[in-house]
Amino acid sequence: MIYFTDGTKENFLTAFLLAYRDEEALLASSETQLVLGQECVFVKTDLLRAKKAEARLAALDGGCLRELSLLLRSGDARREQIAFAYLKFLTEMRRPVRGMLAESAVLDAIKCLEAVTLEIHRMHGFVRFLECGSGALYAPIAPVHDICDLLVPHFRARFPEFPFVLHDVPRRKAAVYDGKNAFTAPLERAEIVLSADEKEWQALWRRYYRSVNIPSRERLKQMRAELPLRYRPFMTEFL
């Protein structure tokens, strides 16, 4: 049976309970293509049961809920199945399992988690803010994983006095910090007015980027490994 979830934690935990004893269970997000001839169910959230499952999992391993929340943000199409296999194994073992790296369920989960946390780390560097006329900062981004709100604490600690918006363009949502509070909101398109000298600073940055390179030591493969092409469309130095 395929269990389709809507991407929320509560819905996933409901599906987790439903699928737990099903040997052939497959968990998937609702965007996944339906398979002909396979039995499937669209899981309806049961808040009470989800809460219970959450408490039970937390009792077994305090860190697993944070891991679950990161796993569900992954851009990997198999994320629900990976999270399901990991939590099922954890429940069977009745203790934290993240060190059991010889187990496929654990390895897959760790690999998936690392991909998400790596992107968070990378985005701390690769985000490019545009200064608006009002002094607020606006950054369009297109991360592989759904992480735009997880970037807020980093920039909030760094720029406590500047309001900023991190706009996840493909997911049409934004993480906003208004100078006091942070929240997420749906955002289709942003109309922004750039500050007077924004273009000049961008030109200076491009000049700097070109000058600091040593042309005789070209290593494009290395560059691409560290800064994959997918991040470049919003980075000032490549525009």
């Binding site: 780390h121 990378r122 390179n213 040593i214 042309p215 030591r217 493969k221 560059m223 560290e226």
Partner: peptide, 16 residues
């Protein structure tokens, strides 16, 4: 934290 990478494969972290 690396903020960019130049074609020589080096990281741009600081304004050097």
């Amino acid at each position: 934290c690396c903020h960019s990478f130049t074609p020589d494969g080096r990281c741009v972290s600081l304004l050097k």
